[in-house]
């Protein structure tokens, strides 16, 4: 079975409503960007799921490696002073 005529894979991101971020919903195949947008509309918004679509070729996505997760994300763990709950404010002080 030939794989030569397979259309490239695109990832699809949809904004469900104004005010929300685009969210990854899945992937599809399309020969070009215009077709990818149209396919995204037909495959992922048949029930009013979105008001805006982004498509990007899957091969263009740069992703972090789970093997690097410790080095990437652990260093943020002990920076507790970044969070507002770190600070004890007396009850009498309002709107802070």
């Amino acid at each position: 079975m030939t794989t030569a005529n397979d259309w490239p894979l695109y990832e699809v991101f949809i904004r469900a409503r104004g005010g929300l971020d685009h969210k990854h919903v899945g992937s599809l195949h399309a020969a070009d960007a215009r077709m990818a947008l149209e396919h995204a509309r037909d495959v992922y918004t048949r029930r009013l799921e979105g008001i805006s679509i982004w498509v990007v070729k899957s091969s263009e996505i740069v992703a972090s490696d789970p093997a690097d997760a410790d080095a990437f994300f652990e260093p943020a763990r002990d920076k507790v002073y970044r969070h507002p709950t770190f600070y004890d404010i007396p009850d009498e002080v309002k709107t802070l």
Binding site: W7, H29, H39, D42, R46
Partner: peptide, 11 residues
């Protein structure tokens, strides 16, 4: 000719 085109024509 392709799954996505099936959906497009049906729409």
């Amino acid at each position: 000719p392709a799954l996505e085109e099936d959906l497009a024509l049906a729409n």
